[in-house]
Amino acid sequence: MASLEAFLRGRLCTAGATAAALTAAAHTLAACARRPWPLLDAEADARTASPAQRDAARTQGRLLLRVARRVWPSPVLDELAGAVPSPHHPLALGAAAHAAGATSEEAALAAAYHAVAGPATAAVRLLGLDPVDVHGVLAGLAPDLAAAARTPHPADWAALPAGAAPALDLLAEAHARAQTRMFVS
């Protein structure tokens, strides 16, 4: 359980904080008059060195965007789908949160939670960890989630955070190569 907590905290402080800031930037962009989605998507690409993680982020982004367009129909979501059919997940999440009327910080918090909730669920299913204990670990991460959601998202996208997690990249590529694949993240 201690190693799960260390794993989740490490993922949250790197990939999670980066996703949170990209999500907040997408939320801000959704409210702008001119919306160069492909440029923000390229910034997400540059922060995701692992092809397996890029594929996962784009699959999740495409699926989220499809659902969001049905639940919260909006011209901004249609425009994003037209400009980048399979956007990185943070772009889809930020745009969907905007369409749903959520704030930028709420969108970032959802991104941070997304970074840890998936692996936590996997730990219950695959490692057979006690689900109540795992939820206890998630609850304990609440202050870190709030901090990740407050990660600054400067208007100059080049300066957005870009936290690297080398072991995560190794694991993602090894998983993409495994004979039995269970998740896309």
Partner: peptide
């Protein structure tokens, strides 16, 4: 605590 996270550097 972060350096030793299995997501970052582990035991490296």
């Amino acid at each position: 605590a972060l350096d030793s996270s299995p997501a970052l550097y582990g035991t490296a």
